[in-house]
Simulated scan of single mutants.
Amino acid sequence: MTRIDLAGLTARPAQVWGGIRLVPLVREEPVEWLRLHREVYGGYGAGAVGVGPRTEYVSYIPHGFVADWSGDTGRTGGSAAYGTQFGDGAEPPACVPVRRHHRMAKGERGGKRLRFLPLHLALEGYLALHFGGPSVVWDEWSQQAVRQGLSPRAEAAYAGWQVRGLGEALRVFEIHPGQCGVLVYAADALAAAFLVPHPDDYRALHPTLIEDLYGETVHQYALYGAPVPEFTARIRDTGHLRGLADLRAAARAQERSWTESHDTLMARDLLGTSYAFERVRRAGPYELYRFLPPFVHNAGQEQHIGEVITDHKGRAVYLKSFRLSDKQIRRGYLLRRLADCDWHLGRTAEALGTGYEELVTRIRAAGFASLLNAHTVSQRVREGRGS
Protein backbone atom coordinates (compact mmCIF):
# COMPACT_ATOMS: atom_id res chain seq x y z
CA MET A 1 0.00 0.00 0.00
CA THR A 2 1.38 3.38 -0.96
CA ARG A 3 0.31 6.86 -2.00
CA ILE A 4 0.43 8.73 -5.29
CA ASP A 5 3.48 10.98 -5.42
CA LEU A 6 2.89 14.20 -7.38
CA ALA A 7 6.22 15.78 -6.44
CA GLY A 8 7.33 18.47 -8.88
CA LEU A 9 3.75 19.46 -9.77
CA THR A 10 1.92 22.60 -8.70
CA ALA A 11 -1.83 23.26 -8.82
CA ARG A 12 -2.62 26.59 -10.46
CA PRO A 13 -5.80 28.63 -9.82
CA ALA A 14 -8.87 26.88 -11.16
CA GLN A 15 -11.08 27.79 -14.09
CA VAL A 16 -14.82 27.34 -13.74
CA TRP A 17 -17.68 26.67 -16.12
CA GLY A 18 -20.99 26.25 -14.30
CA GLY A 19 -20.60 23.29 -11.94
CA ILE A 20 -17.33 22.12 -13.52
CA ARG A 21 -14.03 23.21 -12.02
CA LEU A 22 -10.75 22.45 -13.84
CA VAL A 23 -7.54 22.74 -11.84
CA PRO A 24 -4.39 22.81 -14.01
CA LEU A 25 -1.27 20.96 -12.88
CA VAL A 26 2.01 22.58 -13.93
CA ARG A 27 5.26 20.65 -13.88
CA GLU A 28 8.45 22.40 -12.79
CA GLU A 29 10.49 20.56 -15.39
CA PRO A 30 8.97 18.50 -18.24
CA VAL A 31 9.88 14.82 -18.49
CA GLU A 32 11.82 14.90 -21.76
CA TRP A 33 12.65 11.21 -22.09
CA LEU A 34 9.11 9.87 -21.79
CA ARG A 35 6.49 11.01 -24.26
CA LEU A 36 2.87 9.98 -24.48
CA HIS A 37 1.16 9.71 -27.86
CA ARG A 38 -2.38 8.95 -28.88
CA GLU A 39 -3.28 5.96 -31.02
CA VAL A 40 -6.69 6.29 -32.64
CA TYR A 41 -8.66 3.20 -33.59
CA GLY A 42 -10.70 3.52 -36.75
CA GLY A 43 -14.41 2.89 -37.16
CA TYR A 44 -16.80 2.40 -34.29
CA GLY A 45 -14.88 -0.54 -32.96
CA ALA A 46 -14.98 -2.21 -29.62
CA GLY A 47 -12.00 -3.95 -28.06
CA ALA A 48 -11.69 -7.47 -26.76
CA VAL A 49 -8.84 -8.46 -24.48
CA GLY A 50 -8.19 -11.97 -23.22
CA VAL A 51 -7.81 -11.88 -19.42
CA GLY A 52 -7.85 -15.60 -18.67
CA PRO A 53 -8.92 -19.03 -19.90
CA ARG A 54 -12.13 -18.64 -21.92
CA THR A 55 -12.55 -15.14 -20.47
CA GLU A 56 -12.41 -11.82 -22.31
CA TYR A 57 -12.76 -8.19 -21.28
CA VAL A 58 -14.86 -6.33 -23.87
CA SER A 59 -15.26 -2.56 -24.02
CA TYR A 60 -15.64 0.34 -26.41
CA ILE A 61 -12.19 1.84 -26.93
CA PRO A 62 -11.97 5.22 -28.70
CA HIS A 63 -8.19 5.43 -28.48
CA GLY A 64 -5.10 4.03 -26.81
CA PHE A 65 -1.98 5.66 -25.41
CA VAL A 66 1.57 4.91 -26.48
CA ALA A 67 4.39 5.63 -24.03
CA ASP A 68 7.66 6.22 -25.89
CA TRP A 69 11.07 6.55 -24.20
CA SER A 70 13.16 5.96 -27.35
CA GLY A 71 14.11 9.65 -27.56
CA ASP A 72 12.10 10.13 -30.76
CA THR A 73 9.55 12.81 -29.85
CA GLY A 74 8.00 12.80 -33.29
CA ARG A 75 4.54 11.46 -33.92
CA THR A 76 5.46 9.18 -36.83
CA GLY A 77 3.56 5.95 -36.41
CA GLY A 78 2.68 6.85 -32.82
CA SER A 79 -0.58 8.67 -33.29
CA ALA A 80 -3.17 9.91 -35.72
CA ALA A 81 -5.65 12.75 -35.75
CA TYR A 82 -9.39 12.39 -35.87
CA GLY A 83 -10.73 13.65 -39.19
CA THR A 84 -14.06 15.24 -40.11
CA GLN A 85 -16.19 13.75 -42.86
CA PHE A 86 -18.39 15.89 -45.08
CA GLY A 87 -20.84 14.71 -47.72
CA ASP A 88 -24.48 14.05 -48.45
CA GLY A 89 -25.91 10.74 -47.36
CA ALA A 90 -22.87 9.73 -45.40
CA GLU A 91 -23.70 6.71 -43.28
CA PRO A 92 -21.81 4.88 -40.55
CA PRO A 93 -20.36 1.47 -41.38
CA ALA A 94 -22.95 -1.26 -41.67
CA CYS A 95 -21.16 -3.46 -39.15
CA VAL A 96 -19.38 -2.85 -35.86
CA PRO A 97 -15.84 -4.21 -36.08
CA VAL A 98 -14.27 -5.76 -33.00
CA ARG A 99 -10.59 -4.96 -32.58
CA ARG A 100 -8.74 -7.67 -30.73
CA HIS A 101 -5.93 -6.60 -28.40
CA HIS A 102 -3.82 -9.37 -26.99
CA ARG A 103 -3.03 -7.44 -23.82
CA MET A 104 -4.12 -4.35 -21.96
CA ALA A 105 -0.49 -3.24 -22.08
CA LYS A 106 1.88 -4.43 -24.78
CA GLY A 107 5.50 -3.60 -25.54
CA GLU A 108 6.39 -2.44 -29.03
CA ARG A 109 9.51 -1.61 -31.09
CA GLY A 110 11.93 -3.75 -29.19
CA GLY A 111 10.87 -2.55 -25.76
CA LYS A 112 11.16 1.16 -26.53
CA ARG A 113 7.41 1.78 -26.61
CA LEU A 114 4.42 0.63 -24.58
CA ARG A 115 0.87 0.64 -25.90
CA PHE A 116 -1.92 0.54 -23.28
CA LEU A 117 -5.60 1.33 -23.07
CA PRO A 118 -6.31 4.33 -20.79
CA LEU A 119 -8.57 3.58 -17.80
CA HIS A 120 -9.30 0.06 -19.04
CA LEU A 121 -6.34 -1.24 -17.08
CA ALA A 122 -7.87 0.21 -13.92
CA LEU A 123 -11.40 -0.97 -14.68
CA GLU A 124 -10.20 -4.48 -15.45
CA GLY A 125 -8.53 -4.57 -12.04
CA TYR A 126 -11.75 -3.52 -10.31
CA LEU A 127 -13.98 -5.89 -12.31
CA ALA A 128 -11.63 -8.78 -11.54
CA LEU A 129 -11.81 -8.12 -7.79
CA HIS A 130 -12.37 -11.63 -6.36
CA PHE A 131 -13.88 -12.52 -9.76
CA GLY A 132 -13.41 -16.22 -9.08
CA GLY A 133 -16.03 -16.15 -6.34
CA PRO A 134 -15.96 -18.25 -3.15
CA SER A 135 -12.60 -19.84 -2.39
CA VAL A 136 -14.31 -22.29 -0.01
CA VAL A 137 -17.54 -24.01 -1.03
CA TRP A 138 -19.88 -23.32 1.89
CA ASP A 139 -23.47 -24.53 1.73
CA GLU A 140 -24.83 -20.99 1.31
CA TRP A 141 -23.21 -20.53 -2.11
CA SER A 142 -24.95 -21.77 -5.24
CA GLN A 143 -23.47 -23.98 -7.94
CA GLN A 144 -23.31 -20.91 -10.17
CA ALA A 145 -20.99 -19.23 -7.68
CA VAL A 146 -18.77 -22.31 -7.58
CA ARG A 147 -18.66 -22.85 -11.34
CA GLN A 148 -18.74 -19.32 -12.73
CA GLY A 149 -17.79 -17.01 -9.87
CA LEU A 150 -18.84 -13.36 -10.24
CA SER A 151 -19.74 -13.78 -13.89
CA PRO A 152 -20.93 -11.87 -15.73
CA ARG A 153 -19.69 -8.76 -13.93
CA ALA A 154 -20.40 -5.36 -15.45
CA GLU A 155 -20.16 -1.75 -14.27
CA ALA A 156 -21.88 1.31 -15.70
CA ALA A 157 -20.00 4.48 -16.65
CA TYR A 158 -20.70 7.68 -18.54
CA ALA A 159 -18.70 9.10 -21.43
CA GLY A 160 -17.34 12.61 -20.88
CA TRP A 161 -19.74 14.16 -23.38
CA GLN A 162 -22.61 12.93 -21.17
CA VAL A 163 -21.34 14.86 -18.14
CA ARG A 164 -23.16 18.16 -18.11
CA GLY A 165 -20.92 21.16 -18.74
CA LEU A 166 -17.69 19.20 -19.20
CA GLY A 167 -17.55 19.62 -22.97
CA GLU A 168 -17.96 23.40 -22.78
CA ALA A 169 -15.49 23.66 -19.91
CA LEU A 170 -12.84 21.79 -21.90
CA ARG A 171 -13.54 23.91 -24.98
CA VAL A 172 -13.04 27.28 -23.25
CA PHE A 173 -10.27 26.04 -20.94
CA GLU A 174 -7.06 28.08 -21.18
CA ILE A 175 -4.00 25.86 -21.06
CA HIS A 176 -1.25 27.21 -18.80
CA PRO A 177 2.39 27.41 -19.90
CA GLY A 178 4.07 24.24 -18.69
CA GLN A 179 0.77 22.50 -17.93
CA CYS A 180 1.05 18.73 -17.83
CA GLY A 181 -2.23 17.72 -16.23
CA VAL A 182 -5.62 18.64 -14.84
CA LEU A 183 -7.93 17.71 -11.98
CA VAL A 184 -11.61 17.68 -12.98
CA TYR A 185 -14.24 18.56 -10.36
CA ALA A 186 -18.02 18.35 -10.62
CA ALA A 187 -19.85 20.39 -7.95
CA ASP A 188 -16.41 20.59 -6.26
CA ALA A 189 -16.21 16.81 -5.94
CA LEU A 190 -13.09 15.36 -7.58
CA ALA A 191 -14.17 13.47 -10.70
CA ALA A 192 -10.86 12.52 -12.30
CA ALA A 193 -7.14 13.23 -12.44
CA PHE A 194 -5.15 13.30 -15.67
CA LEU A 195 -1.39 13.77 -15.86
CA VAL A 196 1.13 13.37 -18.69
CA PRO A 197 4.93 13.78 -18.86
CA HIS A 198 5.26 16.81 -21.16
CA PRO A 199 3.27 20.00 -21.92
CA ASP A 200 3.21 19.14 -25.63
CA ASP A 201 1.63 15.79 -24.77
CA TYR A 202 -1.02 17.52 -22.69
CA ARG A 203 -1.97 19.89 -25.50
CA ALA A 204 -2.37 16.94 -27.84
CA LEU A 205 -4.31 14.79 -25.35
CA HIS A 206 -6.46 17.48 -23.67
CA PRO A 207 -9.43 16.76 -26.01
CA THR A 208 -9.43 13.06 -25.02
CA LEU A 209 -10.95 14.00 -21.65
CA ILE A 210 -14.34 14.29 -23.36
CA GLU A 211 -14.06 10.62 -24.39
CA ASP A 212 -12.98 9.28 -21.00
CA LEU A 213 -15.19 7.34 -18.62
CA TYR A 214 -16.76 8.96 -15.54
CA GLY A 215 -18.70 7.37 -12.71
CA GLU A 216 -22.34 7.66 -11.79
CA THR A 217 -21.62 10.02 -8.88
CA VAL A 218 -19.81 12.45 -11.18
CA HIS A 219 -22.68 12.45 -13.67
CA GLN A 220 -25.22 13.16 -10.94
CA TYR A 221 -23.18 15.95 -9.35
CA ALA A 222 -22.74 17.65 -12.72
CA LEU A 223 -26.43 17.28 -13.57
CA TYR A 224 -27.92 18.45 -10.27
CA GLY A 225 -25.12 20.50 -8.72
CA ALA A 226 -25.24 24.29 -8.59
CA PRO A 227 -22.56 26.51 -10.18
CA VAL A 228 -19.37 26.66 -8.13
CA PRO A 229 -17.57 29.89 -7.19
CA GLU A 230 -14.56 30.99 -9.20
CA PHE A 231 -11.12 31.55 -7.74
CA THR A 232 -10.75 35.24 -6.91
CA ALA A 233 -7.54 36.78 -5.62
CA ARG A 234 -8.26 39.34 -2.90
CA ILE A 235 -5.35 41.61 -2.12
CA ARG A 236 -5.85 44.07 0.69
CA ASP A 237 -3.94 47.32 0.50
CA THR A 238 -2.55 47.70 3.99
CA GLY A 239 -0.09 50.39 2.98
CA HIS A 240 2.68 47.93 2.06
CA LEU A 241 1.97 47.91 -1.69
CA ARG A 242 4.32 50.53 -3.04
CA GLY A 243 4.78 49.33 -6.60
CA LEU A 244 4.31 46.58 -9.16
CA ALA A 245 6.85 44.33 -7.44
CA ASP A 246 4.82 44.38 -4.20
CA LEU A 247 1.61 43.78 -6.11
CA ARG A 248 3.18 40.84 -7.97
CA ALA A 249 4.43 39.35 -4.71
CA ALA A 250 0.96 39.66 -3.16
CA ALA A 251 -0.64 37.97 -6.19
CA ARG A 252 1.83 35.09 -5.98
CA ALA A 253 1.05 34.71 -2.28
CA GLN A 254 -2.61 34.33 -3.22
CA GLU A 255 -1.68 31.63 -5.74
CA ARG A 256 0.36 29.77 -3.10
CA SER A 257 -2.57 30.01 -0.69
CA TRP A 258 -4.87 28.50 -3.33
CA THR A 259 -2.41 25.66 -4.00
CA GLU A 260 -2.07 24.80 -0.32
CA SER A 261 -5.82 24.84 0.31
CA HIS A 262 -6.44 22.76 -2.81
CA ASP A 263 -3.88 20.07 -1.98
CA THR A 264 -4.89 19.75 1.67
CA LEU A 265 -8.66 20.04 1.20
CA MET A 266 -10.03 19.46 -2.30
CA ALA A 267 -7.54 16.78 -3.42
CA ARG A 268 -7.02 15.33 0.07
CA ASP A 269 -8.77 11.99 -0.53
CA LEU A 270 -6.94 11.30 -3.80
CA LEU A 271 -3.47 12.22 -2.53
CA GLY A 272 -3.85 11.06 1.08
CA THR A 273 -5.21 7.56 0.43
CA SER A 274 -2.98 4.49 0.57
CA TYR A 275 -3.59 2.36 -2.51
CA ALA A 276 -2.83 -1.25 -3.41
CA PHE A 277 -0.54 -1.04 -6.45
CA GLU A 278 -0.19 -3.85 -8.98
CA ARG A 279 2.64 -3.57 -11.49
CA VAL A 280 1.39 -4.23 -15.01
CA ARG A 281 4.61 -3.77 -16.93
CA ARG A 282 8.07 -2.33 -16.68
CA ALA A 283 8.65 0.19 -19.47
CA GLY A 284 12.38 0.88 -19.66
CA PRO A 285 13.21 3.12 -16.67
CA TYR A 286 9.50 3.55 -15.92
CA GLU A 287 6.86 1.26 -14.43
CA LEU A 288 3.16 1.06 -15.25
CA TYR A 289 0.85 0.26 -12.32
CA ARG A 290 -2.86 0.05 -11.73
CA PHE A 291 -4.17 0.81 -8.27
CA LEU A 292 -7.17 0.04 -6.10
CA PRO A 293 -8.33 1.90 -2.97
CA PRO A 294 -8.65 0.23 0.45
CA PHE A 295 -12.48 0.23 0.07
CA VAL A 296 -12.95 1.83 3.46
CA HIS A 297 -16.64 1.86 4.33
CA ASN A 298 -16.75 5.55 5.19
CA ALA A 299 -19.67 7.57 3.85
CA GLY A 300 -18.61 10.61 1.87
CA GLN A 301 -14.95 9.65 1.37
CA GLU A 302 -13.81 9.72 -2.24
CA GLN A 303 -12.17 6.55 -3.52
CA HIS A 304 -10.53 6.19 -6.90
CA ILE A 305 -9.17 3.46 -9.11
CA GLY A 306 -6.67 4.26 -11.80
CA GLU A 307 -3.32 3.73 -13.44
CA VAL A 308 0.00 5.46 -13.04
CA ILE A 309 3.46 5.45 -14.61
CA THR A 310 6.25 6.22 -12.14
CA ASP A 311 9.91 7.06 -12.59
CA HIS A 312 12.83 5.53 -10.69
CA LYS A 313 12.05 7.74 -7.68
CA GLY A 314 8.40 6.67 -7.53
CA ARG A 315 7.09 10.02 -8.80
CA ALA A 316 4.05 9.98 -11.06
CA VAL A 317 4.77 10.98 -14.65
CA TYR A 318 1.42 9.70 -15.98
CA LEU A 319 -1.83 9.36 -14.06
CA LYS A 320 -5.44 8.72 -14.90
CA SER A 321 -8.10 8.05 -12.27
CA PHE A 322 -11.76 7.03 -12.11
CA ARG A 323 -13.92 7.93 -9.13
CA LEU A 324 -16.02 5.06 -7.80
CA SER A 325 -19.62 5.56 -6.80
CA ASP A 326 -20.75 4.80 -3.26
CA LYS A 327 -22.39 1.60 -4.53
CA GLN A 328 -19.15 0.46 -6.17
CA ILE A 329 -17.22 1.20 -2.97
CA ARG A 330 -19.71 -0.80 -0.88
CA ARG A 331 -19.47 -3.70 -3.33
CA GLY A 332 -15.68 -3.72 -3.18
CA TYR A 333 -15.76 -3.45 0.62
CA LEU A 334 -18.17 -6.37 0.89
CA LEU A 335 -16.12 -8.57 -1.44
CA ARG A 336 -12.95 -7.83 0.51
CA ARG A 337 -14.55 -8.72 3.85
CA LEU A 338 -16.04 -11.95 2.45
CA ALA A 339 -12.67 -12.97 1.05
CA ASP A 340 -10.92 -12.15 4.35
CA CYS A 341 -13.32 -14.53 6.12
CA ASP A 342 -12.97 -17.30 3.50
CA TRP A 343 -16.48 -16.46 2.22
CA HIS A 344 -18.07 -17.86 5.41
CA LEU A 345 -21.24 -15.82 5.94
CA GLY A 346 -21.41 -16.35 9.69
CA ARG A 347 -17.84 -15.23 10.33
CA THR A 348 -18.22 -12.32 7.89
CA ALA A 349 -21.35 -11.11 9.68
CA GLU A 350 -19.51 -11.29 13.00
CA ALA A 351 -16.52 -9.37 11.57
CA LEU A 352 -18.86 -6.68 10.25
CA GLY A 353 -20.66 -6.44 13.57
CA THR A 354 -24.00 -7.33 12.03
CA GLY A 355 -26.43 -10.22 11.88
CA TYR A 356 -26.56 -13.10 9.43
CA GLU A 357 -29.86 -11.95 7.89
CA GLU A 358 -28.60 -8.38 7.42
CA LEU A 359 -25.46 -9.64 5.68
CA VAL A 360 -27.58 -11.68 3.28
CA THR A 361 -29.61 -8.54 2.57
CA ARG A 362 -26.42 -6.61 1.82
CA ILE A 363 -25.16 -9.32 -0.54
CA ARG A 364 -28.44 -9.23 -2.45
CA ALA A 365 -28.43 -5.42 -2.56
CA ALA A 366 -24.92 -5.54 -4.03
CA GLY A 367 -26.23 -7.57 -6.96
CA PHE A 368 -24.87 -10.96 -5.89
CA ALA A 369 -28.20 -12.62 -5.06
CA SER A 370 -27.78 -15.22 -7.81
CA LEU A 371 -24.64 -16.51 -6.09
CA LEU A 372 -26.53 -17.53 -2.96
CA ASN A 373 -28.22 -20.87 -2.38
CA ALA A 374 -31.65 -19.44 -1.61
CA HIS A 375 -32.98 -22.58 0.11
CA THR A 376 -30.02 -22.99 2.48
CA VAL A 377 -29.88 -19.28 3.31
CA SER A 378 -33.62 -19.12 4.06
CA GLN A 379 -33.38 -22.16 6.32
CA ARG A 380 -30.52 -20.68 8.34
CA VAL A 381 -32.27 -17.31 8.61
CA ARG A 382 -35.31 -19.10 10.07
CA GLU A 383 -33.10 -20.99 12.48
CA GLY A 384 -31.44 -17.72 13.47
CA ARG A 385 -27.89 -19.00 13.03
CA GLY A 386 -25.11 -18.17 10.62
CA SER A 387 -22.83 -21.18 10.80
Rank of each mutant, 00 (worst) to 15 (best):
R385N: 07
Q220D: 13
A251S: 05
E29I: 09
H304V: 11
N298Q: 08
W343E: 08
G167M: 13
L319F: 13
P13T: 02
E28V: 07
V218K: 07
Y158R: 15
S142H: 11
E255T: 10
T273D: 08
S59Y: 06
I175L: 04
Q179S: 02
G132M: 11
R242S: 14
W161F: 10
V163C: 14
A366V: 11
M104I: 03
R385F: 10
F231G: 03
A233F: 04
T310D: 00
W258C: 05
Q379M: 14
R171C: 03
W161M: 02
K313I: 13
I4N: 00
P227H: 14
G384E: 08
A156E: 06
G50F: 07
Y126V: 04
L345I: 09
I20K: 02
L36Y: 01
G43S: 13
V218N: 12
E230A: 14
L209P: 01
F131C: 07
G165Q: 08
R362P: 00
D201T: 06
L223S: 10
T84L: 12
A48S: 11
G160I: 05
Y286P: 04
T259L: 04
A94P: 01
R248W: 05
T238A: 09
T310N: 00
G132K: 06
P92V: 04
A253P: 00
L271I: 04
P62W: 08
L117E: 07
D200P: 11
A186V: 05
G52E: 14
L334D: 06
V98M: 15
L359C: 02
G50T: 07
E56H: 13
R281V: 12
P177L: 12
H198K: 05
H101S: 06
A369T: 08
R385V: 06
G346H: 09
I329P: 01
A366F: 15
G332N: 01
A122G: 08
R54Y: 07
A156Y: 12
C180L: 09
G165H: 06
L9M: 09
Y41P: 00
E174M: 13
V98R: 13
R236Y: 08
V96P: 03
H297E: 06
P53K: 12
A374Q: 14
L319Q: 12
R290F: 07
G314K: 04
R75F: 08
G71V: 10
T73I: 06
L270M: 14
E124M: 05
T2V: 06
A267Q: 01
A80Y: 03
R21L: 03
L265M: 07
R362V: 02
R27D: 04
V172N: 08
L223N: 05
G367C: 12
T232I: 15
Q379F: 15
D246H: 13
Y221D: 15
L34N: 01
D269T: 03
E28H: 09
G52D: 09
E357R: 15
A193M: 03
V296H: 12
G284L: 01
P285K: 12
K106Y: 07
A253S: 10
A299D: 05
H102D: 10
H101F: 15
D246A: 07
Q220T: 12
V51A: 00
A251Q: 06
A159C: 10
G306H: 01
V308W: 01
P24L: 13
A187H: 10
A193K: 01
F291Y: 11
V66I: 09
S135N: 06
T10A: 13
T238W: 10
